[in-house]
Computed example of a mutant assay.
Amino acid sequence: MVLINVVGVALIALIVWWFWLYKPKQIKAGGDETITIVVDNGVYQPAQIQLPAGKAITLRFLRKDQSPCAEVVQFPALELAKSLAVDKSTVVEIPALETGEYDFHCQMQMYRGKLVVG
């Protein structure tokens, strides 16, 4: 009985860490280069990309994870979605953006990332 409670508390702690406390790797981009984002093991790597305002950028998604959830990347604020093929690069052209934060995620929002423009 105690073991079940300990496992339950550990799972709750893991869920809290994953959804609210986890700080993904962040990179800074100048806006002229192509950024490769690897989709694997339930995460986008890097998951946060800092960009200058007013510059377009090219994102290249390389999907290694065969999970159906990783099949599509969506940029809701940009009304943009792309299907990602397994073990192939998919290019997503991001137009010049105004200062702000722009989320991207899979259709179930399990894989999550953010463009930080400023």
Rank of each mutant, 00 (worst) to 15 (best):
K82R: 12
K64G: 09
G54M: 01
R60K: 13
I57C: 03
F75Y: 06
N41A: 13
C69P: 05
D65I: 14
V72M: 08
K55L: 01
A53T: 00
A85S: 15
A77V: 00
G42C: 08
D65Q: 14
V38D: 07
A53N: 01
Q66H: 14
A47L: 04
C69N: 13
L78V: 03
I37H: 07
V73D: 06
Q66E: 15
G42F: 08
A85G: 15
A77K: 04
E33Q: 02
Q48A: 06
Q66D: 15
L51N: 02
K82I: 13
V92N: 04
V43T: 10
Q45L: 09
Q74F: 03
N41G: 09
P46W: 01
D32M: 05
Q74N: 03
P76E: 05
K64N: 13
I35G: 00
R63I: 15
R60C: 15
L59F: 04
T58K: 12
V38W: 03
Q48E: 09
Q50S: 02
F75A: 04
E71M: 08
Q45K: 08
K88A: 15
N41D: 14
V91M: 10
F61N: 06
E33V: 00
A70F: 09
R60V: 15
Q45C: 08
A70R: 10
V73H: 05
V39R: 05
P68L: 11
R63N: 13
K88W: 11
Q74S: 06
L80F: 07
I37N: 07
L59I: 08
P52T: 00
A70V: 09
Q50A: 02
P46Y: 02
G42N: 06
L84I: 08
R60F: 10
S89D: 10
D87A: 11
S67T: 10
K64W: 08
V86S: 03
L62P: 06
Q50K: 01
L51V: 02
Q66T: 15
L51K: 01
Q45V: 04
D65C: 14
P76D: 07
S83V: 14
C69K: 12
E33H: 00
E71P: 03
D32I: 03
V39K: 04
P46E: 04
D32S: 11
Q66P: 15
V43C: 11
T34W: 03
Y44W: 11
K55Y: 01
L59P: 05
D40I: 09
A81K: 12
Q66I: 14
V92E: 04
E79I: 09
L78M: 07
N41S: 13
A70L: 08
L80Y: 07
N41R: 14
A53G: 01
Y44L: 10
S67R: 12
V86C: 05
K82E: 12
I57P: 02
I57S: 03
K82S: 08
D40L: 07
L62M: 12
S89Y: 12
I35V: 07
P68M: 11
I49E: 00
R63H: 14
P46K: 03
I37Q: 09
D65E: 15
D87V: 09
